[in-house]
Computed example of a mutant assay.
Amino acid sequence: MADDPAVVRAAAPWRELAAVPVAFGAAGEAEVVVSPGSRLCPPGWVGVVVLGGAAVVTAPTQETADRIRAAVAGVPAGRLGDPAVFTRAFPLGRVLGPAALAYVSAAGFRPAAGDADPDAGVERPERLPAGHPDLTGLHRAAGRADADEAGLDEITSPAFAVRVDGRIAAAAGYCRWPGRTAHLAVLTAPALRGRGLARAAASAAVRHALARDLLPQWRARVPASRRVAAALGFTELGVQLSVEPL
């Protein structure tokens, strides 16, 4: 992992969010630490981030950490994105993920036609302030679960929105994370998915982040979202998982 500049940069925010000193080691290695204040997961949960085949795992207590170390001994770190691995340590409650973590550089970015070409058949995204009232309708159309998953209400960047018949059909932005990382948020009205709207909105948000020398980060569980990221040039470097020990 230490020899891959892309993974090194991608690891920076996760190391800070772990809230205790951690390091992503060589591929196959996992570091399990006690961190009650970890922001890799909800409070009291176990947080897992795998990057470049190496893993960092935060546990809320020493006892939980000891159980995890015993359970994952001999397990390749790349497999720690699978919740089933942690059933060897304790019964599981709720599970968040696994979600793929993907990143793109300025050199690898492939802008969407609707973002770069006004004649491509997709309306060019407009720039709105974060929290603009017109975004409320998109949140309602998507439903609470999808809106919460997207996190568009948490962005610190402007919102980049595509309208259909005057209403916002898709929007994207990002939240500024530690390590000069731009964590993407993308949301599309369910009835209008599959038309390239998310790609156009996200492309504008990625362009904005790259212009500020930020590293765009795309976290997704849904295959359709992962395909949008891949179309924009994102490369999947790892996964994130949170599990609730019972």
Score class of each variant (00 low, 15 high):
residue 20 V to G: 00
residue 118 P to K: 13
residue 48 V to K: 06
residue 238 G to T: 03
residue 114 G to L: 09
residue 32 V to L: 05
residue 51 L to A: 02
residue 124 R to P: 15
residue 55 A to G: 06
residue 201 A to N: 06
residue 92 L to R: 12
residue 150 A to L: 03
residue 87 T to H: 12
residue 109 F to K: 06
residue 240 Q to G: 15
residue 31 E to V: 00
residue 188 T to G: 00
residue 185 A to T: 08
residue 178 P to I: 02
residue 91 P to F: 15
residue 163 R to E: 11
residue 153 D to W: 14
residue 241 L to S: 03
residue 227 R to E: 11
residue 139 H to V: 07
residue 59 A to R: 03
residue 73 A to E: 15
residue 33 V to P: 00
residue 89 A to N: 08
residue 69 R to V: 12
residue 80 L to F: 14
residue 80 L to G: 10
residue 182 A to E: 08
residue 118 P to F: 14
residue 84 A to Y: 14
residue 54 A to K: 04
residue 52 G to K: 02
residue 213 D to Y: 07
residue 243 V to D: 05
residue 73 A to K: 11
residue 128 L to Q: 06
residue 125 P to W: 02
residue 60 P to V: 05
residue 226 R to T: 02
residue 228 V to G: 03
residue 149 E to V: 06
residue 221 R to G: 12
residue 189 A to C: 10
residue 21 P to H: 07
residue 8 V to W: 04
residue 219 R to L: 14
residue 73 A to S: 15
residue 41 C to H: 05
residue 217 Q to R: 08
residue 104 V to H: 13
residue 99 A to M: 14
residue 138 L to V: 13
residue 22 V to S: 00
residue 4 D to M: 01
residue 49 V to H: 09
residue 86 F to N: 06
residue 174 Y to C: 10
residue 235 T to Y: 09
residue 236 E to W: 07
residue 40 L to D: 06
residue 118 P to S: 12
residue 63 E to P: 05
residue 178 P to G: 07
residue 198 A to L: 07
